[in-house]
Amino acid sequence: MSSLVKNIIRFFLFILVQVFVLDKIPPLHRLITPYLYFIFILWLPFNMPRLSLTLVGFLYGLTLDYFLYTPGLHAAACTLVAYARPFIINILIARESTEFNYIEPSITAMGFTPYAVYILILTFLHNSYIVFLEWLRFPNFWYFLGKVLATTGVSFLLAMITEMLFYRKQRFRTNTA
């Protein structure tokens, strides 16, 4: 299956899971809405141009927004995640050649610890931005802090579990292929 088809399927799958499963759960401890959908952006191929990555992030967030009646909220957060992604990858992977050996970020491609850090940073970024936008409208500092930390923890766990449950088989790319 080509990378494009795979990502198009993932696009709809993650949106539907977020809208009809995770968003139907009553908030845990009245604070935590588990977010998983943005993992789609984290799984996009390494060699995607920065510009289209940002655009895909925006459109992806907007699609979710129309389902949840919050136009702009998730779009803003997804754009931020998509824009920040290349910077984080550049910091985390020390590489000598300019080519990546694998197509997408995963445990096999990056190693467990760098991958976990990669997920954690972007999850934190995504959740703090979303809660921050909420906070701008209804200020309450302790609520803000608690919600950011709790939501990030749950989302991070969910993302790592998803990664381990649904093993993505990836070919090692060589120069000859």
């Binding site: 920065r50 510009l51 940002t54 655009l55 925006f58 967030g61 907007l62 927004d65 919050t70 136009p71 702009g72 909220l73 779009a75 803003a76 754009t79 931020l80 824009y83 936008l133």
Partner: peptide, 19 residues
């Protein structure tokens, strides 16, 4: 890239606060 990112952010935030 950065300018494009800013434009998308502004669009998203405008939608959010107008809504």
């Amino acid at each position: 890239n950065f300018v494009f990112f800013l434009i998308l952010q502004v669009i998203a935030l405008m939608m959010l606060f107008r809504y």
